[in-house]
Write a protein that binds this DNA or RNA. Sequence first.
DNA 1: CGACAATACCTCGAACCAAAAGGTATTGCA
DNA 2: TGCAATACCTTTTGGTTCGAGGTATTGTCG
Lengths: 112, 112
Amino acid sequence: MARSNPPFMSGVPELLLLRLLDQSEMYGYELVRSIRSATGEAITLGEGVIYPVLHALERNGALRSRRKAVGGRTRVYYSLTAKGRKRLDELREDWHRIQGGVASALEAGGHA
Amino acid sequence: MARSNPPFMSGVPELLLLRLLDQSEMYGYELVRSIRSATGEAITLGEGVIYPVLHALERNGALRSRRKAVGGRTRVYYSLTAKGRKRLDELREDWHRIQGGVASALEAGGHA
DNA sequence: CGACAATACCTCGAACCAAAAGGTATTGCA
DNA sequence: TGCAATACCTTTTGGTTCGAGGTATTGTCG
């Protein structure tokens, strides 16, 4: 059957993307490197992850893009729409919830 | 192609299961409720998630099970093996890594 | 000038996880 | 009797992510 809820665990790539784009306009290739450095090398997402997510987000109106020629090369810069900012808040909350939940479970009870 | 890296995001159900079973022997149906309460209602995993993970973990030697009749009903109790304890440590580390990575990205730079 | 790394975009196929729903059987209780 | 709860399990479905590949341009080093 159809899965009504998003897989609740995931959306981390989406969250990271939105977060970085909320800070500044960026293009895909740049995001790949930004994510690695923003997470202190803890998370590396390949282009095969980035581009599809970018396209999906644009399709549903969370991102807007504009092409910009830079030295003969074309870059596609993405930025957040209002909808994207709302989505970011949602994902942030989801993340906090599950992050807190896991933390409780890991720490709870000690080794009693 | 085979995926060399673990899906970096996941293994949360697995982590939770191992963690609880490290504290005390439990059976599947019980775990469903324990997870919900141990995570402060933040995470609810259905039986459709629990059982397959349980079976997979047993198959690869991280868990051992024993059947126990309780009031005419049969319960299958699971507990950790040494391998399971090692696996738990791994997953715990993975989780810390990505948790820290996401935290960095979310907090970094503030809202400058 | 020729080769090769880096930049920059993209897509496809497979793998994998987890959700929902369904299926069986027993016990307890109203 | 019938329905809810306990207890086990599997199957289908669907979404996400991964790796690998594919194109084209620019910059650079010999």
